[in-house]
């Protein structure tokens, strides 16, 4: 029997795959026995991991074939180095060959691995191009965001290049980390110690209200599984009309919230009745607020 409320955020990369896919269907590519670890870390005196911090392979989800990649947030912050990135790129490109019901990316990453910075950055661009290619072929790419690192740096750009995004309540999605902003621009710009501020700016609820992600779920692997199943074989259009519509939506956002300085300002402007209560709501209560707002806007 499948455990119903296994924590997604606390699970390892492999645990997330095991819990998400149909039991016993996962087959890994370039797994740990292939020993394709980072060629760059030993020179820096740093330990490597046999899978370079990412697990990729194929399996079944609700009976349908999927390709899946899962970043291990516990290894170097889920960061993308040369091998790690190449595994994700190869996985996405396999989507062109086998046309699965989706390519699913379980993201838990601080971004580029600075210890192999250049190779990691270019790998990020390769992953992203592969996302666009597989999407253009009609295969949906689904990003799931949860875990200790959230989704930052180049990986946040990759995430927003996918068809669909689901985040956990504790998921965060942003390009620059709070610590980096504070270190460069000062504590007046961003107080990285203010965790509530971090969540109001970068957290899953703000991203959901803003329309940057498509679903917010409770912290359970089963909830992620259900969200992903709902998007199998559901690619979003990527043609000129779709991209122009997205452009209009983003331009309207920047105009509308030009004066906002806090997530609370944005939520109030969106018509959330008690914005100060949003951070305290559990996933069900929060989603009820989102649903009532969507109902009202229809």
């Amino acid at each position: 029997m499948r455990p119903v409320r296994r924590s997604y955020d606390e699970a390892t990369a492999r645990g997330r795959i095991d819990g998400l896919l149909d039991a016993g269907t996962f087959r890994e590519f370039c797994g740990p026995t292939a020993r394709r670890s980072s060629p760059h870390l030993p020179a820096l005196g740093l330990p490597v991991s046999f899978d370079d911090g990412v697990v990729v392979g194929e399996g079944r989800l609700d009976g349908r074939p999927v390709l899946i990649g899962s970043q291990e947030g516990g290894f170097m912050g889920g960061s993308v180095g040369e091998v790690h990135g190449a595994k994700l790129t190869g996985l996405l490109e396999r989507g062109l060959d086998v046309e699965p019901a989706a390519v699913v990316l379980l993201l838990d990453s601080g971004g580029v691995r600075l210890q192999e910075a250049n190779a990691g950055l270019i790998a990020m661009g390769e992953i992203q191009r592969a996302v666009f290619r597989v999407r253009a072929a009609g295969v949906p790419v689904i990003a799931a965001i949860g875990g200790r690192n959230g989704c930052y740096g180049g990986m946040s750009i990759v995430a927003r290049s996918c068809d669909w995004i689901v985040v956990s309540e504790q998921g965060r999605l942003s390009i620059s980390g709070p610590e980096v902003i504070e270190a460069v621009e000062g504590i007046e710009e961003f107080d990285a110690q203010d965790r509530a501020l971090v969540w109001r700016t970068m957290g899953g609820k703000h991203r959901r209200l803003l329309g940057e992600v498509d679903a917010l779920v409770e912290n359970s692997i089963e909830a992620f599984r259900m969200a992903v199943i709902g998007w199998l074989e559901q690619p979003r259009p990527l043609d000129l009309a779709a991209v122009e519509a997205e452009h209009a939506r983003l331009e309207a956002r920047l105009r509308r919230f030009a004066e906002c300085r806090d997530g609370l300002d944005v939520w109030r402007d969106l018509g959330v009745e008690r914005p100060e209560e949003i951070p305290e709501l559990d996933a069900d209560a929060f989603n009820a607020v989102v649903a009532s707002m969507e109902e009202r806007d229809r």
């Binding site: 492999r14 740990p32 026995t33 330990p47 991991s49 899978d51 516990g74």
Partner: peptide, 12 residues
């Protein structure tokens, strides 16, 4: 054929 456990991290 094989078994893998644990994650390479600080103290792990």
């Amino acid at each position: 054929g094989h078994a893998l456990v644990g994650v390479v991290g600080s103290g792990n």
